[in-house]
Every structure is written in C-alpha cells, then in structure tokens.
C-alpha cells in the first residue's frame, strides 16, 4: 500500500515536470520580438535575419523544436547560448553550485533552529520566552528580504566591519573563506525562512498537545519536554515536513533579490541577466532547473509525510 502511494507521488512529480516543460517552452515561444533580429541588432538586414533563423532552426515547426529541446534537456544538453555562442549547460552548472552552496548553508542553520525554537515556544507556551520568539520571528517575516539584507549590511558590514558587504564569491577560494564571504546573504536567508517554519512547528505541536494521549502522558508522570519530543513531535511531522520543503525550495528558487543585493554569482541573477539579453536557451534551462528543484522538494515532502504516518507504515 505504502509503495503504491509513493510510486503514485513519483509519477505525479514526473507528470508535473513535463507540464512545466511545456509551459516554459510555450511562454518563451510567445515572447514578443524576434530572436534573430535581437541578435543582429543594428546589422539586421532581411538576408542576415533569414540566415540566422535558418541556422537556429527557427523555421522548423514548434512541436519539433520542443521535442528536440526536451530530449536534449533530459540528456543534460540545454543548447547553445545566444549571448556568447557557448553551450548553456556548463555555464549554468557553476552558477547552480553557487546557489546550492548558499542554500545549503542557510538550510543547515535555519531548519534545526526553526524546529528547536518552535518546540521551545510550544513547551513554554504563553511564557515571556514564547512571546519573544513569536514576536521576533513575526517581525523578521514581515520585513521585505532586501530590507533585512541592507540592515545587515549597514550594521554588520559598514558599522562593525565584521563581514564583507559584497559576496565576491569564487570557486577557487578555500571552504572557510567561502563561508566567510557568504555570512551576510546566508544570515538574511535564515531570517527570512525561519519564522514560517518555526510558527508552523509551534502551531502543529500545540495542536497535537490538545490530544487525549498527551494528557495521558502527563498523567503517567512524563516530563513536559519529553511529552513534546516523544509524543507530540512524531505526530506533528507531516505538516512540518511540508513547510520545511517549501522553504528549502524558496532558498534555491526565490533568492534572486538577495543575490542581487549581495552581488552573489548565483543562478537567479544569471537567469535575470539572460532574460535581459533575450538568451532564450539559457532562460529555458534556468526555468526548468528551478521547476525541477521545486517539484522534487515538494514530492519528497509528500513522500516524507506518507512515511511519517504510522497507519500507512504499519498497516493492520
């Protein structure tokens, strides 16, 4: 039963990705303006435009170009960049690594911190500590991320001078040096995603705490922290997993603003540049990768939620 449920989620994930690929292709297809004209700029004569169109295969029917693009993408070949005539895949790879590095650092800090804070707030419900945690996280979620970023730059980089304000990131740096460079963008991201996960943890745990089996544990003389960790948390996992996955996806997909503020060479900024240059193959590739990350994380969350359900894990 559980296997078929998991298989169903996997199939749904693949289906979603395929639909997204259709959507991405269709949108780039109906973008106004002609690629060939854009490339040639001032030098566009009817003859050169026709030649370029021919060279790019733009005269083929759309479904044929879609099929070629999709089969290429599945094999990791995203075509040739229109901006610099080099293959798209290797250029993206480096940027993707940078983005994933920043996202992982933020996630490694944010996820355990958010869940612990949520649990502490639940254990000490209505206390000063609970209110402080809730209020600060609410404040951090209410402020736009670029504003947090500029605040951090102002206080920690300009005033205190502890960290660089620009994340001049380079793959050749040592690991520790890399970490030092991305402290501020990572901290910004942590503050942005912390509140959502923490509040969800607190709310679901408190919800479970109202169940009779929690009263039973209390009447067995189980201490409060153990009730929360042993009895409430395992039954609150499914919603927590979902909100964690959403935030992880945001760390990869939604960090464009933070990348711009800190001039961080990530994939988001790369995609925005490509849009400006009308570099369609690069835009398509970035879009597909972002979609894949998003769909995969959510699919994993769904599967995680299924596995967290004891009724499904241990059928009658």
């Amino acid at each position: 039963m559980i296997l078929s449920l998991v298989a169903k989620r996997l199939a749904l994930g693949v289906l979603t990705l395929w639909l997204v690929s259709l959507l991405i292709f269709a949108i780039t297809e109906i973008l106004p303006g002609d690629v060939a004209t854009a490339i040639l700029g001032q030098a566009a004569t009817p003859e050169t435009v026709a030649a370029i169109r021919n060279q790019l295969g733009l005269n083929e029917p759309a479904w044929w170009r879609y099929l070629q693009w999709l089969t290429g993408a599945i094999q990791g070949d995203f075509g040739i960049s229109l901006a610099n005539q080099r293959p798209v895949a290797p250029q993206i790879l480096g940027r993707l690594e940078n983005t994933l590095f920043l996202a992982s650092v933020a996630a490694v800090i944010a996820v355990p911190l958010a869940i612990s804070l949520g649990l502490i707030a639940a254990i000490k419900q209505h206390s000063l500590l609970d209110r402080t945690i809730s209020l600060t996280t609410l404040a951090s979620i209410s402020v736009p991320e670029f504003f947090i970023a500029y605040l951090l730059i102002f206080f920690l980089a300009v005033q205190a001078g502890w960290f660089p304000s620009m994340a001049r990131f380079d793959a050749d740096m040592g690991f520790l040096e890399q970490l030092g460079v991305i402290v501020l963008p990572a901290l910004t991201l942590v503050l942005v995603v912390l509140a959502h996960m923490m509040r969800m943890t607190r709310a679901t745990v408190l919800n479970v705490m109202a169940q009779p089996f929690v009263e039973m544990a209390e009447l067995k003389g189980v201490p409060k922290w153990r009730i929360v960790v042993q009895h409430a948390l395992p039954n609150a996992l499914a919603p927590i997993i979902n909100v964690v996955a959403l935030n992880l996806a945001y760390l990869v997909v939604g960090v464009i603003v933070v990348e711009v503020v800190f001039v961080y060479p990530g994939l988001g900024q790369f995609m925005v540049d490509a849009v400006a240059r009308r570099d369609i193959p690069t835009v398509q590739a970035c879009g597909l990768i972002f979609a894949a990350v998003y769909v995969t994380l959510n699919m994993l969350a769904d599967i995680g939620a299924i596995l967290a359900n004891p009724r499904l894990r241990h059928p009658r």
Binding site: F213, E215, M216, Q230, P234, R311
Partner: peptide, 14 residues
C-alpha cells in the same frame, strides 16, 4: 489513570 477512549489515549506513532 485509565481513560474513556483508549483509541484517543494512545500515541498513534508509538
């Protein structure tokens, strides 16, 4: 203590 609803008084995850 023995509660009225045994189904609700056991932690489903353990």
């Amino acid at each position: 203590y023995v509660a009225q609803s045994a189904a609700a008084s056991f932690n489903p995850a353990k």
